[in-house]
Simulated assay, not measured.
Amino acid sequence: MCEIVIRHAEKTDVAAVHHLFTLPEVIRNTLQVPHPSLHMWEERMHPLPSDQRQLVACIDGRVVGHLAMHIPPRPRRSHTASFGICVDPAFGNRGVASALLSEMIDLCDNWLRVERIELTVFVDNAPAIAVYRKFGFEIEGTAKGYGLREGEYIDAYYMARLKAG
């Protein structure tokens, strides 16, 4: 098995991240809209706002996963983070999502004073839900009609992980 390298996203990664978000499977399971422009991703990734961190997962130098994390600057929510993640379906079931989540959790727990990590996930995305549960995320509620996908409103789970201890 090839080694998965997790690192901070760089300006040179914009085209690769843009490519990930053009994949039908990624669009289906995120809140992205089909046909994203490269320009939009250039603006989204650089300069990176101070309340965000972006990681990429690479195998053999190829970007195969992306995680964007937001930490609110407001004092009463600065102990929380939310994130979005995607993995190239061609590299599914190889530990890419787990590697990205593990690195994000290490950053939150040990470097960024984050006590609570939050996410939303479509209720029918069983593989994602399974990996989130593996890392201690729990379902806290269901948002009915949360997001439009292929002409239908889909429910989503609110999930969160609290720092142990």
Rank of each mutant, 00 (worst) to 15 (best):
P73S: 12
S37Y: 06
V63Q: 09
H46E: 12
E10V: 00
H46G: 07
M40N: 13
L48W: 06
G65W: 02
E25F: 07
P73D: 08
A68N: 15
A57E: 04
A15D: 09
D13W: 00
D51T: 04
T22K: 10
H35F: 08
D51Y: 10
T80S: 15
Q54W: 03
S37Q: 08
F21H: 06
D60W: 01
T12E: 15
H8D: 13
A15T: 03
R77D: 13
E10W: 01
T30C: 02
V26G: 05
A57K: 06
H18F: 09
P34Q: 05
Q52I: 00
I59P: 04
T12D: 08
L48Y: 06
L20I: 03
S50N: 08
L31S: 14
H35V: 02
P49N: 12
H18G: 12
H66M: 05
V14F: 06
M40L: 15
H8E: 14
R77G: 10
T12C: 11
E10P: 03
V33L: 10
V33T: 13
V33M: 13
A16V: 01
T80L: 08
S50D: 12
N29V: 00
S37G: 11
E42I: 00
E25C: 08
Q32S: 15
D13N: 06
R53Y: 11
P36D: 04
P72S: 06
P49G: 13
I85G: 00
D13H: 05
C58S: 14
S82K: 00
R77T: 11
L38Q: 13
G61I: 02
A57Q: 05
R74S: 14
W41I: 06
A68H: 09
R44I: 02
P34N: 07
M40C: 10
S37R: 03
P73R: 09
G65F: 02
A9R: 04
V14I: 14
R77I: 00
R44G: 11
H8K: 13
T22D: 08
V17C: 09
S82L: 01
L55G: 07
G61L: 01
Q32H: 14
R53E: 12
P36H: 00
M45I: 02
D51W: 05
E42G: 12
P34I: 04
P47S: 10
A9C: 14
V26A: 09
D51S: 10
L20E: 04
H19T: 08
M45C: 03
H8I: 08
R62E: 13
E25D: 15
V63C: 11
G84S: 15
H18P: 10
I27D: 07
L38D: 09
H19D: 08
L31E: 12
P49A: 13
Q32N: 14
S50T: 05
E43F: 01
N29E: 09
V17F: 07
T30E: 01
I59G: 07
R53N: 11
I85Q: 05
Q32T: 11
H19C: 06
R44C: 08
T22G: 11
E10L: 07
V56C: 02
M45W: 03
L67D: 03
P72H: 03
I27C: 10
R28P: 00
P36Q: 04
H39A: 15
D60Y: 00
S37F: 09
R28I: 00
M40D: 15
A81T: 00
S82T: 11
A57C: 10
H46A: 15
P34E: 05
V56F: 05
A81V: 01
F83N: 03
A81N: 04
I71A: 09
R76L: 10
V33W: 07
E25H: 13
Q52H: 12
A16D: 13
